Each structure stands twice: as C-alpha cells, then as structure tokens.
Simulated scan of single mutants.
Amino acid sequence: MTSEVITADAAGTWQLGDLTVNRLGFGAMRLTGSAAFHLGAPSDRERSISVLRKAVELGVNHIDTAAFYFSALRSANEIINSALSPYADDLVLVTKVGPLRNYSGQWATSARPEDLRGHVEENLRQLGRDHLDVVNLRRMRQESIAEHFGALAELREEGLIRHLGISDVEPRHLAEAQAIAPVVCVQNRFALDSYDPATDELLRICGEQGIAFVPFYAISGDRGPQRAATTHDDAVLAVARAHDATPTQVRLAWTLRQGPHVLTIPGTGNPDHLVENVAAGALRLTDEEAGTLDVLHQKDS
C-alpha cells in the first residue's frame, strides 16, 4: 500500500442513529494491557494515551469501550477521559453493559436489569460525560433480552443514553429489542476465519434494515481478546502480497467489504499497528480476491 498517511475517512461513513462515524473505528479493550479480561502486566499508560490521540488525529471518531475493560492498574474509560477530554463534537463513544466483573477482575454473574442503571452511571462517571452516545446491551447467555433492554430503554427516555445497540445476539434477539426501542447497531463476533450462520444472517438483516453491524475480534482469528492473529491462510497471504499490505489489513478490508453498514473497531496499544489498521480502510479488494476470501470464510462452517 502507499506510504502516504491514510486517515479513517478512507473507509467511508455510516450513521449510528443521528451520529455520523467513519467506518474504521477503534476498540479500547487492549489499551489496558494485552487484553482487558486477563490481569497480566498493565500497559504503559502514556503510550495508551498517545495511541488514542493518534487515532483521533487519523480521523477515528468512533471509539468502542466499556467500564469492565480494566486490568490490574488500567481502566480503558479513564485512559479515554484523560487522553481526549474535552471531547470533540464529532467523537462518538460507544460503551456496553451486561457483563459483571468484581474489583479483582473475576467474572461474576451477569447483571440483573435493575443493575444496569448503575453500570450506565459508572460509565458516565469514568468518561466524564452527562450522557452516553451509544450503549450496547451485551447478552450473557440469557434466552430473552427483553427485561434488560427495557431497562436501558427507560434510561434512554431519561436522556442518559442517546442510542441503543445489542451484542452477542441472534436474529430473534434483534426483533425482541426492536419491539421495545430502536436499535442502531449490532455487535457480534465475526471474522474471516470465524463462521456462524446466525451471525451471517444478522449481517444480512442489518444491511436490509440500515442497522450498523460491528464485528468484534475481526482480526484476532482464534486468539479472541488476546491479540491479532499470527497465522494466516495462503489466500490471505497472497492477497496481502498483491497489495503490498499486511494480512491484518486484508482481514479488515474484507470485513469492510461485507457491506456499507459494516463498521470495524480494531484495537491496539501499538502506534504502528494503529496506523496500519487505519490505512486498511483504503485497501480495495478485487471481486476475484473478495470471492476467494468469501469461500475461505464459508469453509470455516
């Protein structure tokens, strides 16, 4: 790819309700260390702050975070607040609630509907905001999300939340939520080498209804929250060579090509990786390359 500086607007834009975001965003989980869910060595705080500021400098205006993104000494929300407050008018902060971690970092049971007000208020406090732009309800294996989503809809009516989304769901949960309040985005695990029929169906439904589809772990392969994938199929490597790009950039470009409603939120604590991730928004796959990668995706079924 070209050596010139590429900014996030190269990927195009989409609407989260009445909020316009560049389709290439940033996930804050790794700001606290190798992964917020594993309490290992904490990240360098000043480096994390510089990565966030560089992201905004490169045009990123969609940052995904959560109050439960923390490690031994770091809180993603606190780092975001320190790095970016006072916030630019066009910066959209998207958070999520539902999972419950205690102060030692261990996962507890999922939040009850009546707990969600406290979760929202904690995000507000940590981020230094009087409202949250978008709040995703992360489903924690419950069959129905109606009570939890209804609790968030009440907070939206109160003005604490501007827009609502859902995460880790099936198509039936989207319909269930939409019967209660508008849904502006769906977050599910989705990647080139991770196939799930229900998620692919959600991708299609969201496209038809104009809802943003936001994959998480899009570049991590089977490593989940740990870090980006380090092994790649030969087809990915061939496309990367053809474009003088990295395999990670190819994965992101393929993800964005799944539809204009698809947003990506790759996370990193490395400033060089950040620049590479943002530049992926300018990588245009040929129809033949995309078709080859589509087959690779389906093969994982």
Rank of each mutant, 00 (worst) to 15 (best):
E57W: 15
L58A: 05
L58H: 13
L58T: 13
G59E: 14
G59A: 09
G59D: 14
G59T: 14
V60E: 14
N61R: 04
N61A: 05
H62F: 11
H62G: 04
I63A: 05
I63K: 11
I63S: 11
I63P: 15
I63G: 08
D64A: 01
D64I: 09
D64S: 04
D64L: 05
T65P: 11
A66I: 11
A67I: 01
A67V: 04
A67P: 07
A67S: 11
A67N: 08
F68V: 15
F68R: 10
F68G: 04
Y69H: 11
Y69G: 10
Y69L: 08
Y69A: 08
F70L: 05
S71T: 12
A72R: 06
A72H: 01
L73Q: 14
L73G: 12
L73E: 15
L73A: 14
R74T: 08
R74P: 05
S75R: 12
A76V: 01
A76R: 01
A76T: 02
A76G: 06
N77T: 04
N77Q: 09
E78L: 02
E78V: 01
E78A: 02
I79F: 03
I80A: 01
I80T: 06
N81M: 02
S82G: 10
A83L: 08
A83C: 09
L84M: 08
L84Y: 11
L84D: 06
S85Y: 13
P86R: 02
P86K: 01
P86S: 02
P86V: 01
P86G: 00
Y87T: 07
A88H: 08
A88E: 06
D89L: 00
D89K: 08
D90Y: 05
D90M: 00
D90P: 04
D90Q: 03
L91M: 00
V92Q: 03
V92L: 01
L93Y: 12
L93T: 11
V94A: 05
V94M: 05
T95D: 03
T95Q: 00
T95S: 02
K96M: 11
K96C: 13
K96L: 04
K96I: 10
K96E: 12
G98H: 13
G98V: 15
G98P: 15
G98C: 09
P99H: 07
L100V: 05
L100N: 14
R101C: 00
R101P: 09
N102A: 02
N102H: 10
Y103R: 07
Y103L: 06
S104D: 13
S104A: 07
S104H: 11
G105Y: 06
G105S: 07
G105A: 03
Q106Y: 12
Q106F: 12
Q106S: 12
Q106E: 15
W107D: 03
W107P: 04
W107M: 05
A108L: 15
A108D: 15
A108K: 14
A108P: 04
T109F: 07
T109R: 13
T109M: 06
S110F: 08
A111W: 12
A111S: 15
A111K: 13
A111Q: 15
